[in-house]
Nucleic acid binder design. Sequence first.
RNA 1: GCCCGGGUGGUGGAAUGGUAGACACGGAGGACUCAAAAUCCUUUGCCCCCAAGGCGUGCGGGUUCGAAUCCCGCCCCGGGUACCA
Length: 824
Amino acid sequence: MAESYNVREIEAKWQARWESEGLYRVDNDDSRPKAYVLCMYPYPSGAAHQGHVRNYTFGDLIVRYRTMRGEAVLSPFGFDSFGLPAENAAIKTGIHPRIFTDARIEELKESVKKLGAVYDWRREIKSHDPSYIKWSQFIFTKFFEAGLAYKKNAPVNWCPGCQTVLANEQVLADGTCERSGDLVVKRDLEQWFLATTRYADELLSELESLEWPERVKTMQRNWIGKSQGTRFKMQIAGSDGLFLEVFTTRPDTSFGMTYAVIAPEHPLVDLLTSDDYRDEVESFRTEAIDRSEIERQSIEVTTKVKRGVFTGSYAVNPFTNKEVPIYIADYVLMGYGTGAVMAVPGEDQRDYDFAQVYGLPVIRTVQPPDDFEGEAYTGQGTKINSDWLNGMEIDQAKEKATEFLVKAGIGESTVQYRLRDWLVSRQRYWGCPIPIVNCSDCGLVPVPLDQLPVLAPDDVEFLPTGESPLAIHPTFKYTSCPRCGKKAIRETDTMDTFVDSSWYFLRFCDPTADDAPFSKNAVAAWMPVDQYIGGIEHAILHLMYARFFTKALADLGFVPSNIREPFMRLFTQGMIRLGGSKMSKSKGNLVAPQKYFDSVGADSLRLFHLFVGPPADDFDWSDQTDDVIDGCFRFLNRVWRIALGSAESFPGVAIKMHDRETTSADLDMLRLTHRLIAKVSEDYERWSYNTAVAAMMEFTNSLYRYGGAGAQRETFDFAVDTLTKLLAPMAPHVTAEIWERRNGGLVHAEYWPVADPELIKLEKEILVIQVNGKVRDKVEVDPGIDEETAVAIALASPKVQQAIGGKQLKKTIVKLPKMISLVI
RNA sequence: GCCCGGGUGGUGGAAUGGUAGACACGGAGGACUCAAAAUCCUUUGCCCCCAAGGCGUGCGGGUUCGAAUCCCGCCCCGGGUACCA
């Protein structure tokens, strides 16, 4: 690759220009139609990797494209700069997380700029910045005052080695700690929660209104897990008013209940356990609670063996007034429903499995089909063995059974969600401190706004014990109560970093606001985000939390009430894989973009990411990938050469230019140009960048042939300038340089070209003639051809006549002007 | 197990019921050159010496004048999820 345009000089020049020109700085009162285009802000892990490159290439393309379409595009950038890697690095090296993080941010920012991606850097956000921490904490206190943030005892992942709580993601599949390798156990600890379940119904129903990938919506729906069912109470046999409440989605199967099961953590365990069984129950429960949830599941889900123990008590089935034994078993979870179930082995596979192990009876209450060979039957059918429900279909029986329970005053129809409240406490240093003080007189008191932000002290020690440096700091946690002034204890937990990323897109609208997290007007000006772009890995948590925040902040009056969803359109890009796994820093299989910036340039790398396949698809990086990137570079050089005609430095086809009357060749070229505008515009709209690039390559090849044969200057210039504009959002540096040299000014300040509808019409069509569904001939015809003429042409073809072989035509299907199908 | 995706030349991919393989990479051949690089041109799904023709979109059926595309049943690969009563 010797003879080519000067990549480094041109890219550096334009990156500097874009920063100084401010073309992509937008003010909140901009009068153009608004568009908010946002890539998920990154965790700063150092220089950008190919995943970032892909993400920001798509984002930047849209920003530049929509700007050329005359919109005011908000394109901000920021950093999700709190998080565990910086703290782990501190433990390893002793470098303070802030120093570490600031350095990584600079690296990332530099490589993002080298990519040529443009942002309104005036709006930059760092979530570890005190001005951001302040408002994260402010929002937390507002949530606390509204009852949306609360503290409760909860079973958490506890690592005995690290002496700390772990997030689910930090627990490996085998139930051990990712750092120490110790077996993680469940511990009950006082933790902070955000009441996401309060919005469960709205989080579910408003998914409908979003233009998101269907699979992301499905994942969220499953995560919320709404199920309609019935809750009812069963009297404990021989007790004085002791009841066990269960939740079921199948009240119709109640006559088939042969036992009941409660979770090992259920509050009634002690009361229900009779003396004869106490030892067994105790040992089972201790073991079950101590084992991690993951371990409990991995043993039992995979082997289908259910473990449990009889309590010695019986519950009275209100439908039959018969007593059924109550068991404790692992497979019932305290966190869902009432933590207790009626067991119907005839219609529930888990109950069936358990019943097999403990020799419990099975009663079918739905008639399975004759050929049914399974165990539990969960399909449709008629009720049997169910007294007054017999003969009904399942849906009707559900209604009747629930009615019965309601009338008896022991049950009601309810909705259950799988969604749990969000545990936000982290026993970490490098996160946003929870701004609450615990006073022995006043209880939990939020730190008032004028004392925010609560900042973690710098003079802390990072020890590999896993204990939070804040918890062992000599003074941080000792403070006074903001309400009564007495000595009080500060919270030493910090917030889950998903809290920071749940409102950053709002802050971008008003990044310097000093008397509020953001002004309502600024949010009204930009929100919701018109196009959000990021990885599929955030399909559930980040997107769910951000939606929750937006709704809660709207209800608290901070966000305009008409904005209840943050992201109208979401695009999830495919991931880059190398050697079978996702390319990432932690896997150590990165192919750094820098070497491409240094050789073929950012434009070629961007073009490669756009050209290589559909943006939503994963891409496998391979040995041949560099060749493809070189191919993109070759294409840009072809454009450069034909646009600037510098035959002295670039050998190739000599372009012959004429000032002349328009010939049919010129008109053909003009038509091709307008068709390119139409094709590329359409492809930009439907995220089909690979075909847009292909169309431009094809066009460039035509342009070379046209120029080589002798071009009309006017037509040629129009073709080249149009190509330059259409390519400008993809390869911004080289197109900017070409434009400046040819026309002066900024190509990115030009308007997006519009195709002339008259000129995109085809002059000729290829009429395909099929006989019995097989293509037998192709004829060039006028697009306005009438049916009679077309059929005549088809029948006149010797190839067609040969295929027909003199036989009678049974049917003729005509789809003009493309196809005629003859059936014999 | 369940829920999504996906399977097309040597490779990445194109084709929204109507010419399968656009565009590119790689390969082969040629031009230019003392030579090479770069550049340009030709060619490139498989069978067949060529042509004519035939065969071809994971496998087996089906709907249709016509299926990569729609339907049914399998196989394989990738991702998500994990006892949610």
